[in-house]
């Protein structure tokens, strides 16, 4: 497993037709109606067509920019600070029981 998985020898898959909105919405945990899927597919298809212009650019010798102003070793000393009071931690909880967040039973 490598982050920079080779994209294959062929043309990079920069085609709007590749957008499988059902699959992607599932990854994003978004329930979409069939009408929304249709609408978003068309709208994002246009955007992806525009984005496909990036294919023109020769980036073979270019490093990616992850941070506008890269510095390294930004960290803090390991000194514990005060925690949130439990009441503050749970203040916005939609459902709670026994000082814990409650969700429908998870079965893995």
């Amino acid at each position: 497993m490598s982050a920079a998985e080779p994209s294959g020898s062929g043309v990079p898959p920069l085609q709007s037709g590749d957008l499988n909105i059902d699959h992607v919405a599932n990854l994003a945990r978004l329930a979409l109606t069939p009408a929304e899927m249709q609408k978003f597919s068309e709208q994002l298809g246009d955007v992806l067509k525009h984005i496909a212009e990036l294919k023109e650019v020769d980036v073979s010798a270019v490093e990616p920019t992850a941070h506008a102003y890269p510095v390294v070793n930004v960290w803090a000393a390991d000194v514990a600070a005060a925690s949130l009071p439990v009441s503050a931690a749970l203040r916005n909880a939609p459902a709670q029981r026994d000082n814990m967040i409650a969700v429908p039973k998870v079965v893995e």
Partner: peptide, 17 residues
């Protein structure tokens, strides 16, 4: 974050934003 670590503390007492 600098919230304390630990085992056996009261539930949800070792958190921060």
């Amino acid at each position: 974050s600098r919230s304390a670590t630990g085992y056996g503390a009261p539930v949800n007492s070792l958190t921060d934003p």
